[in-house]
Design a protein around this nucleic acid. Structure first.
Lengths: 178, 178
DNA sequence: ACATAGTTTCAATTTAAAATGAAAGTACTG
DNA sequence: CAGTACTTTCATTTTAAATTGAAACTATGT
């Protein structure tokens, strides 16, 4: 197999992967461009420059920039300052556990925290001393939800705060039992 | 406090809750109408009819119908056939643990299963005996991700399959430790 | 089997999210 | 302190998702 053929084979595998990753991203509620860039960087060993992202994925500069920023923000991608040029390069975190932590952290922030914020809303009523059957029933339902949310939050906090990966073993053990 | 005042107070609390729930839904990637209907049913003790949903939330019949179906599909809402009329009524599951299971199940289906499906894609290459450094590197990254995904999947399966709530206690214990 | 009350579907529209691209901003380089 | 090389921003456009509403459909009672 010639060098040129190798490149073609690899590129087709890579583009296929990026496509899969983009579709996956959609299912996860992640903007297509962001998922595609992440797919590109995940499948690429060495750092990549904005213009490469743009040309490989046919994205505008604005979109490439914004989504790269978001990926860095999430901690899924590291910006690397290359010496001699002020051009920024980007590499993806390849470690699966690390990746998952970033995503979990993000989701906690976006989904769990707003739910926990309902606590405050419920609190407003005890001040105003609203006392009706229907309101009490709603508050009871809400209590159940909040208790559960706090429990899940506790697990997230614990799992995400440890530098240790004690839970990695725990998860894998859980898997075996099935 | 007169009966009429009570109703007004309750209604304003309820509408406020529905609004909060709709916003929360948005953060969770749930269509606003679906979240609003769920909020209405969650805060309503007794079954509700499609036309009530429509008028209280100012939704079209089509939307109300489709989203109610989706909620039933998810298991978050039960359809109740009332005797004497063929009109369908709907009640929400109020138990927090039950609710969470439904949502978790849905997410597993939408997010985790597609990820696990990458296994098959990776398999294609061993058949075609593609052997390049770059491909091998990608497959290694992918292996890490898949291992992790399988572990998470195992936990989901286990938690969701038990009728027992052994993990309820476990979660709450986890919370206390923080 | 006709009328009525309710349900379901779906092409067309609306609304919200994401992408574009050009202009403005910033930092390095001689 | 230009001049260039790259980055950032943001008003506009595009695209995708959700909603509408009216027509088709189905079950039920007389």
């Amino acid at each position: 197999m010639s060098k040129a053929t190798e490149i073609t084979v690899w590129e087709s595998v890579q583009l296929e992967f990026i496509q899969k990753w983009r579709e996956l991203g959609t299912a996860w509620g992640i903007p297509p461009a962001m998922a595609a860039i992440h797919g590109l960087l995940l499948s690429q060993a060495d750092p990549v420059v904005t213009d490469e992202v743009m040309s490989i994925l046919s994205l505008s500069r604005g979109s490439a920039h914004t989504q790269l920023q978001a990926l860095v923000e999430w901690g899924l991608v590291y910006p690397v300052k290359s010496l001699g040029t002020r051009q920024m390069r980007y590499v993806a975190e390849k470690d699966a556990w690390q990746m998952m932590s970033c995503i979990a952290r993000q989701r906690k922030k976006q989904e769990l925290d707003p739910l926990l914020a309902l606590e405050a809303w419920k609190g407003v009523r005890s001040e105003n001393a609203v006392d009706l059957d229907a309101v009490r029933a709603l508050d009871k339902t809400l209590d159940g939800i909040l208790t559960q949310a706090r429990a899940v939050d506790g697990v997230f906090e614990r799992v995400l705060s440890e530098d240790e990966r004690w839970w990695e073993q725990w998860l894998i053990r859980g898997l075996r039992r099935n």
